[in-house]
Every structure is written in C-alpha cells, then in structure tokens.
C-alpha cells in the first residue's frame, strides 16, 4: 500500500477531473459550463455509488434518493429559513448521510437482488412521500424567489458560484474515492464484495462496514442536490427522485469499470458525451430524427458492454495489459 501521492493512477484521475472542471472557467462560456455541470454531476453520482456497488458489491437502484433528499432539505433551508447556500449544502450532505445511516441499518441486511429490490422500493416510497409532504410543497415542490440570488451578486454570478462548488465537490469525490479504495476500510469493503460470510469469519464487522460505506456514498450526492436545485430555482418530486437517474449512474459505472476509481469517471464522461451527441444530432433515420433513438442506442450499447465486456473499459484494460494495473486505479 503505497502513499497516494506517489501513485500515477491517482494523478491521472485527478488531472482528468480538474481539466474537465477548469475548461468552462477558462472559456467563460455558458454552454461549456452547462456541459460541465452535467458531466461533473454524473462523475460524482457514479463515483459515490461505486463505493457501495463497486467496492462493497451492493447494487443500489436508490442512489438518487440521497441527491433528492439532500436537495429538498437544502432548498427548504434556503427558501423557508433563509439560510445561506454553503450552510444549506452542508445540511443537505448531512441529512443524506443521516438517511443513509438509518436506511443502511434496515435494508443492508438484505443481500443480492433483495437489496436491489428494496432500494427501488425506497426510491419510490421517498418520491411518493415527498409528493404528499406539505412542508416541501407536496406535488409542486419548492420554488425559490428570484430575489434569493441577489445575495450572491445576481443570477449569473450565482450560477458561476454554484459551478465552482460543483467542481470542488467533483475533485473531492475522486480523492475521496481513491482514499477509500486504498485504505484498510476499503480493503474490508472489497472483502465483503468478494465473500461476505468469509469477511465475517475473518473479523470484519460487516454490518458496520456496510453502513459506513452507504453513509459515505450518500454525503456528496446530498450536497450536489442542493447546488443543482438552487441553480434550477426549483425542486419537484419527479426530478429529485428520478429512478432513471440512479440507473444511469449504474450504467456509467458498468461502462467504465466497477470497483475502480478511474472507471466511473470515464464512464460518466463517455455516457454524458454520447447522450449529448445523440440529443443534439441533426441526422435523420427515415423520417425520424436520430435523437429520437437516443434511448435505443444507449440501451443497445449498454447491452453490448454487459454481454461482452462486463468488467467495463478500465477493468478490460487492466485484464488485458497487466502493466497498466499500476497506472489505472
């Protein structure tokens, strides 16, 4: 176990995220910034879900719940209590962590597909509950007054401010992901992934380790939720708890390679670029525009990956070229 800063793999993944984040800032271009938002959000969601799915081996379809709950709590604090954004972001992260702790105690006892099913239930229960919950605006959600942005130098300034926040969280997320992977705690998680019963016999306190993995994976999505809904000016149950978003995060991890640090980053980047390209393409298939087939093409690609390279891009490279193991973390 070498020191993090001596490992080229760490610098590679960090450099990719820093470059992605910095590009729109140098360009000072709104379109580049919006692309940056989408890609960085995807990176954080995939990297954090990877702690539970890739390191620990628990497939969650409910990762977006942490994004949604964090976002709602943060928006509530800003809208109803008038708290400043950074405090709201902090509370968003903390409340997601708390939710993960309580949920983890309950549903992490389930294994395999039963856990996966339970997380779908949690996602839907959260969405339908919030849609009825009056303090959070029930079905219509929470909408911010335009005047809120004045405190941050106007809407435009606020957008850039949020962007810096997102870049910071994205950079932190890969450092965090790398740190966990190379720590003793991370080794314990990977032992659970490989064989949970053996892990208990070896002496890993599996209920605690799993719960902490779940909590650690929940914090950053919770913080991001606040930033994104603040940027949008409103939050609704359908956006906050979109099951498809959780599944997209799973797909990104699969694309890049689960259990690796670089995989979710590359997977998120690749998936979002592909989606962006398809959605803005002018090509026509017969009388229909290509963008109508975005879902079909994404589904087809994903199927090919699952059938033929289930370990993802990074996993495949690592298997194929053993020397790359040192570089591709």
């Amino acid at each position: 176990m070498r020191k993090i800063w001596l490992n080229p793999g760490f610098w590679l993944v960090l450099a990719i995220v820093v470059a992605l984040g910095a590009w729109p800032i140098f360009q000072q271009d709104a379109a580049a910034r919006e692309t940056g938002f989408t890609v960085l959000l995807a990176i954080v969601m995939a990297s954090s879900l990877n702690i539970v799915m890739g390191y620990t081996g628990y497939v969650s379809f409910g990762h977006v719940v942490f994004y949604g709950i964090g976002g709602y709590i943060g928006m509530y604090f800003i809208d109803s209590l008038g708290l400043p954004l950074p405090v709201a972001v902090l509370f968003g992260g903390l409340s997601s962590a708390l939710l993960a702790f309580l949920l983890g105690k309950a549903i992490l006892r389930l294994r395999g597909a039963y856990f996966a099913l339970a997380t779908i239930g949690v996602n839907e229960a959260a969405r339908t509950f919030v849609a009825n919950f009056q303090p959070f605006g029930a079905a219509t959600g929470i909408e911010l007054q335009f005047s809120v942005y004045k405190a941050y130098g106007g809407a435009l300034q606020a957008l850039w401010l949020v962007y810096y926040g997102v870049v910071g969280i994205a950079i932190f997320s890969v450092i965090f992901s790398y740190y966990i992977k190379t720590s003793k705690f991370g080794l314990g998680l990977m032992t659970i992934r490989e064989d949970e019963d053996a892990a208990e016999v070896i002496g890993i306190v599996t209920p605690n380790a799993k719960t902490w993995a779940y909590v650690l994976s929940a914090i950053l999505p919770g913080m991001l939720g606040v930033l994104f809904f603040f940027k949008n000016g409103n939050v609704e149950p359908g956006d906050a708890f979109r099951l498809g978003f959780s599944i997209e995060s799973l797909v990104m991890i699969m694309l890049g390679g689960q259990g690796t640090v670089l995989g979710p980053v590359l997977g998120a980047l690749g998936y979002q670029r592909l989606r962006g390209t398809l959605l803005t393409s002018d090509l026509m298939i017969g009388s229909l525009p290509l963008k109508d087939f975005q879902l079909v093409i994404s589904g087809f690609l994903m199927l090919l990956i699952i059938l033929f390279i289930p370990s993802g891009l990074v996993g495949w490279l690592r298997q194929r070229f053993a020397t790359l193991r040192r570089v591709l973390a």
Partner: peptide, 26 residues
C-alpha cells in the same frame, strides 16, 4: 448472462427495457 452476477441480469433486462421503450416512443 444467466450465470453471471445478478447485476448483469438486472442491467441486461434494463437495457432491453431501454431499447423497447426507445423504439416504442419513436
């Protein structure tokens, strides 16, 4: 994928879902 880890079957059936849904929407 029937003998692969359950994640593979979950995601494989989900990609079938995406493909049919995409074609159906079009």
């Amino acid at each position: 994928v029937i003998n692969a880890p359950y994640l593979s079957t979950l995601l494989a059936t989900f990609s079938i879902n995406m493909i049919i849904l995409g074609l159906g929407t079009a």
